[in-house]
């Protein structure tokens, strides 16, 4: 509360990092720092969302994001309901609108949505009267992931401004990469994307980032090496010839990590494919922030829920 008092976070929904100002982001990160402290105490319950209903609506399977939002909501005192909609039964979009209308009639205060199509969360947000949080839409955005990554970086490096951050792997299909590119450049970092050209989106060079096709040039002197998850179903000859070849040229191992700064830290949004985009020795090594990212995830989601709750009616 004290943090938010300094900055008016005026958004009704969190649909993406696009549209957030630097002060918006900083306010959320400051609030999340407080939430980290709360989460480390024995008594983790707060009353910020007491009486509020939070619905987790996941059209795509997810373990960590869904449980992270569930914990965040519960720690703030909300009633949390999880709705996992099997992808197979939701092939027609009208179900999305219908589901939105049905849930809206139950008068939730906040809905967290993950959907396999870009723009689906935005569409849903137009059909409900509560606040909507994007927990990942297609290849578009995953704003809370970018915020938790930023929080993790800021807490470990003391700043984001001026850092060199390499985002590596399947940038093309990654909503994590998109949200991070927007957030980190907004916060003054020098952002590089690294990957084979078949996994880089068209026009990427006009999105404010440096583009590298080799790990050696891409992570050279980087402060942060952020690996992306490789979707295995995309890998059999469609975008890269094989997992083996991808691991050889783009998988992060201790040898490649030597190109980065000596104090470079390694991140991954999880779940990791050991031996594909990241070697176990690196993932489990002293420079890995992977588990800390999970902890920061809960804190950032608490911060987001609290910030949005301030703008709910009757608060």
């Amino acid at each position: 509360m004290s943090v938010l008092a300094k900055h008016i976070f005026s958004h009704r929904h969190l649909l993406g990092i696009e549209g957030l100002s630097r002060p918006d982001i900083e306010a959320l990160l400051d609030l999340a720092d407080e939430a980290v402290e709360v989460s480390r105490q024995v008594e983790k319950k707060r009353a910020v969302l007491r009486g509020r209903t939070l619905i987790n609506l996941f059209f795509e399977p997810s373990t960590r994001t869904q449980s992270s939002f569930e914990l965040a909501g519960k720690r703030l005192g909300a009633d949390v309901m999880n709705m996992s909609v099997a992808t197979s039964s939701v092939t027609k979009g009208e179900t999305l609108i219908d589901t939105a209308a049905t849930l809206n009639a139950m008068r939730p205060d906040l809905i967290v949505v993950r959907h396999h199509h870009s723009g689906a969360v935005q569409l849903l947000s137009r059909k409900v009267s509560c606040s909507v949080i994007n927990a990942g839409d297609g290849s578009h955005e995953h704003p809370t992931q970018a915020l938790l990554d930023a929080l993790t970086i800021r807490r470990n490096k003391g700043r984001i401004d001026g850092l060199t951050i390499a985002i590596c792997g399947d940038v093309l299909h990654s909503r994590v990469a998109r949200s991070n590119m927007i957030l980190l450049t907004q916060m003054g970092a020098r952002v590089r994307v690294v990957g084979p050209s078949t996994l880089l989106p068209a026009g990427i060079e006009r999105m404010g980032v440096e583009v590298h096709r080799s790990m050696e040039s891409g992570i050279r002197d980087a402060d942060i090496v952020m690996m992306l998850r490789l979707q295995r179903e995309r890998m059999d000859g469609a975008f890269v010839p094989s997992l083996k070849e991808f691991a050889r040229f783009y998988g992060l191992d201790e040898e490649k990590l030597k190109w980065a700064k000596p104090d470079a830290l390694v991140m991954h949004p999880g779940p990791i494919n050991r031996g594909v985009e990241i070697e176990s020795a690196v993932a489990d090594g002293p420079r890995s922030l992977i588990n800390e990212q999970v902890e920061m995830g809960v804190a950032v989601r608490m911060a987001v829920l609290e910030a949005l709750a301030q703008n709910l009616p009757n608060s």
Binding site: G119, D137, H140, A202, G203, I204, M207
Partner: peptide, 15 residues
């Protein structure tokens, strides 16, 4: 249409 705008929207493009 394939290009920067589609990439920003996270939509697959047609060249």
């Amino acid at each position: 249409n394939e290009g920067e705008f589609a990439s920003r929207l996270g939509l697959p493009g047609i060249p």
